[in-house]
């Protein structure tokens, strides 16, 4: 299971998104590798099951094999948990 945490630059917001996603996934008991990256790299990646991004950026991601999840509040672990469990459980 590979999840890409995606933001425009791949060095800031996506890192924090990955940090909180790791926390939520551990709580949910889901074994997944989360990597932080930028939009262009994500769009060139075909082996991720999920693109996790922030609201407003989801339209920049090319629809493909990965399910796209947009997060309104990066630090709202409940939102992250709800959306990740809906996609994965």
């Amino acid at each position: 299971m590979k999840i890409l945490a995606v933001c425009g630059e791949g060095i800031g917001t996506s890192v924090l998104l990955k940090m909180n996603a790791d926390r939520v996934l551990k709580r949910l008991g889901i074994d997944a590798l989360v990597e932080a990256t930028d939009i262009d790299t994500a769009n060139a990646t075909r082996d991720a099951q999920i693109f996790l991004t922030t609201a407003g950026l989801e339209d920049r991601l090319v629809k493909g094999p990965a399910e796209i999840i947009a997060i309104e509040k990066v630090f709202d672990l409940e939102e992250l948990s709800d959306k990740l469990s809906a996609a994965l459980l």
Binding site: C7, T13, I39, T54, L57
Partner: peptide
């Protein structure tokens, strides 16, 4: 280009 997604928490922009 990417919009205000850098506002990652209430009142806080990165």
């Amino acid at each position: 280009v990417n919009g205000p997604y850098i506002v990652i928490a209430p009142g806080f922009a990165l």
